[in-house]
């Protein structure tokens, strides 16, 4: 089964396709290029959430390169190899990695494919859902030759999720609009990662439709009349939320601004993101 998927992927790579395989969270992680050694020692991470995973596994010392968006203190001094959408194959290859971790839904297919062709072992990991986060902890753990640590990390993340879910079960579920960007208004839609976090921590997403990151008509945002607006546009100034004052909750001041982008980073920061959402959804109620 696995080898069949690999053959399909090779065919896709040969014919220069968009590597549709792997995106969407249905398929599991896949290898591109040669296999890494048993215990890789020069690891490049092409996504901050995967860097977080390596750090949480206690293996930060094996990282030799990260993206320009990485802000974890453990990787502060490491060389940067470009961004999430535009990794530089030249910078990656120059680090002579024996393992490259790649989050597939970021694009950059052609550049990553070329790295693999030129001999860098690439682990392509689709991470969309909370289940993907748990699976990627295991997968990265075993790729690093630290399968036990991966198992432990996945277990502890799963436990945090279950604990919060149980605790939220008896509480009222506020209806929430989770704002990702304000101009234009982009919200977390059904199927997105923050949507899942909301559900776990006891909220109900008012955004509807079949797109995970819709550009949302302001009118519909007003019409859905959420109890609470969560402002996750952490890179924009806080006062900009007044742009959305047509939404009754914003006018009434029922807005909680998240302090970090943890809720948008599908990785071990899951725990902190759930705690933040808990405080936003159930003010005054002690978390688990």
């Amino acid at each position: 089964m696995l080898s069949l998927a690999r053959v399909a992927l090779c065919l896709a790579a040969l014919s220069g396709t968009a590597l549709a395989a792997g995106s969407g969270g249905a398929a599991g992680p896949t290898w591109l290029g040669p296999r890494p050694p048993e215990r890789p020692r020069r690891v490049v991470s092409l996504a901050p959430s995967l860097t977080d995973t390596v750090v949480a596994l206690g293996e930060a010392s094996r990282l030799v390169g990260v993206t320009r968006y990485d802000d974890a203190p453990e990787v502060k001094g490491l060389p940067r190899v470009g961004g999430f959408l535009d990794p530089s194959p030249e910078a990656v290859l120059a680090l002579r990695p024996d393992l490259v971790l790649w989050l597939t839904d970021g694009g950059a297919h052609a550049a990553v494919r070329r790295m693999a062709e030129l001999g860098a072992p690439v682990l392509a990991i689709p991470v969309v859902t909370v289940a993907d986060v748990l699976a990627s902890a295991r997968r990265v753990g075993s790729a690093l030759g630290a399968a036990e640590a991966g198992e432990r990390l996945a277990g502890s993340l799963a436990e945090s999720v279950a604990r919060i879910e149980r605790r939220a079960a008896g509480l009222p579920r506020p209806r929430v609009l989770l704002v990702i960007g304000r101009d234009p208004l982009v919200v977390a839609g059904p199927g997105s990662y923050p949507d899942a976090l909301l559900r776990i921590s006891g909220g109900e997403n008012v955004a509807t439709g079949d797109r995970p990151w819709p550009v949302y008509p302001l009118e519909r945002a007003v019409g859905s009349n959420p109890d609470l607006v969560i402002d996750a546009a952490v890179n924009e100034p806080p006062e900009g939320i007044s742009r959305l004052s047509a939404i009754p909750a914003v006018r009434a001041g029922r807005v909680v601004r998240l302090g970090s982008d943890d809720a948008l980073r599908p990785g071990p920061r899951l725990v902190r993101a759930l705690a933040d959402l808990w405080r936003a959804l159930h003010p005054g109620v002690e978390g688990p």
């Binding site: 790579a13 040969l14 968009a18 995106s23 694009g107 052609a110 550049a111 070329r114």
Partner: peptide
Amino acid sequence: PPEQAARLLYWLMGALGYET
């Protein structure tokens, strides 16, 4: 879908990349 849109945008910008 968003990942196709990102790819489309990158292509239309007029960038030389890494073709097979």
